[in-house]
Nucleic acid binder design. Structure first.
Lengths: 244, 244
DNA sequence: CGTAGTATTGAAACGGATCAATATCTGTGG
DNA sequence: CCACAGATATTGATCCGTTTCAATACTACG
């Protein structure tokens, strides 16, 4: 459901949370790798919660990485601007995702809000010091980054496919999963533009458009509007969405 | 240069080391994010050094992740086997790289030695416990994993290009960088097969072959043999190797 | 309600995949 | 050390799908 209203005023902010598959081992039997309430409070103490409207630039590539961000609400994209003007979208960040980790003190990509967003912002060096003092909290971050690593590898697999329809199917399946918490109807929310999808999948805008048409004509998916999708033929869909 | 001979007998093994770009901030002014001698000893204490011949399988996907590995010598690849028989090579691991981090206690890919290799092998749960106790050591791992994340993103960008020659150029430039330490001549070492290169780049074997031909015909690179390359026209090469 | 950005659809061309034939390399055993 | 066999790599010809260019339709926002 949409978090309607400013409940924040009534009940205090529980603080940032992270989402990740258990990292090293399920052996230690931790079904929940999320942050403990204490850890969330700990992060909250050093974080600032900010609101940005859609299309705001959170930071630009090659600028000093002052803050690390944890998404609380909405979707952010990070991309690399190529000289041809082409934008190469590297990732979409959902609630509970961490982004803005620097390399050599500089941001690597540009981050921009896709929808209106709410973010926790933490001074990079404050976070570093906190993590260095608290191994348990740091371990959550390690899990999270490892999780991101897998997601990125998965994306590399998607882009490795040559057929446009298959790539789009994989992307929609991915969307379906990452938005599972906030799905109201059976519809999958597609917060980003076709153009964003295209540059994430390494396709032209036209190819994405044609791929959606094909999925609709084959009766596999219907697109009630440009920002939502509903799967009609689950079996066919899954078959497409599995890497060849 | 090549670590010839069994020096290990004379001077004791200094232990595993990691390679990564500084993670959060250069602010803390650490030119060397590598492990300290003490940390290497610490890892050495819980690690076993093993030797494997070329083509040995280190582990298989979907099997319990008993160990984490740190590469000491040689090259390992990890790949995903698709049902069509196609192999999708996800990454190549060089000395100082960590691999074998599990998801839910299982390996995600299959790892296989490309050349003869020497690896440090650490029990997954022993490593986890060690990291949980030592925040400073864990921080090195966090840096390392973040570094891997960037590498993977970079690969996704490579695969996103549509021209075969450009992809190959980027790959060779990548090889040049990651093998900088152990380059003897000016030649770049290409330890893996053309077929491995192809499935890493998301191209057919034939396309890779044609791409090498083109690079040679244009006088940009010469391939003295199938496992080495020499850049003749640096300027043209760099122009190709930059993402469009 | 209009306008600028966004998306769809069509036609043509380019480039990589595939199929096929041949060449080269590698490692093994004579 | 050489010869052979299986794996690996190169090269050619054709096909198919994506890109590109272009024209039109839609949508969102002021």
């Amino acid at each position: 459901m949409k978090l309607h209203g400013r409940k924040a005023e009534e009940s205090p902010d529980p603080g940032p949370s992270l989402r990740a598959a258990p990292f090293f081992a399920a052996v230690t039997s931790e079904p929940e790798p999320l942050l403990s309430p204490r850890q969330r409070q700990q992060l909250l103490a050093i974080a600032t919660r900010i609101k940005l409207s859609a299309r705001s630039v959170v930071y630009r590539e090659q600028t000093p990485a002052q803050w690390v961000f944890i998404n609380a609400e909405g979707v952010v994209k990070t991309f690399k601007e190529l000289r041809s003007g082409r934008r190469c979208v590297m990732s979409f960040w959902y609630p509970k995702d961490v982004f803005g980790l620097a390399s050599n003190g500089l941001y690597v990509r540009t981050a921009q809000a896709v929808t209106a967003v709410e973010l926790y912002r933490i001074e990079t060096d404050v976070l570093v010091e906190t993590l260095r003092r608290d191994a348990e909290l740091q371990f959550r971050f390690l899990c999270k980054v490892t999780h991101e690593l897998r997601e990125t590898q998965r994306q590399a697999i998607i882009v490795g496919r040559r057929d446009a329809v298959g790539r789009l199917a994989m992307f929609i399946r991915h969307l379906e999963r990452s938005s599972q918490d906030r799905r109201h109807s059976g519809d999958i929310d597609i917060p980003m533009s076709r153009s964003d999808v295209a540059s994430y999948l390494g396709l032209s805008l036209e190819s994405v458009s044609r791929a959606t048409s094909k999925l609709e004509k084959r009766g596999i998916i219907t697109f009630p509007d440009r920002h939502s999708a509903r799967i009609l033929d689950r079996q066919q869909f899954e078959r497409l969405a599995i890497p060849v």
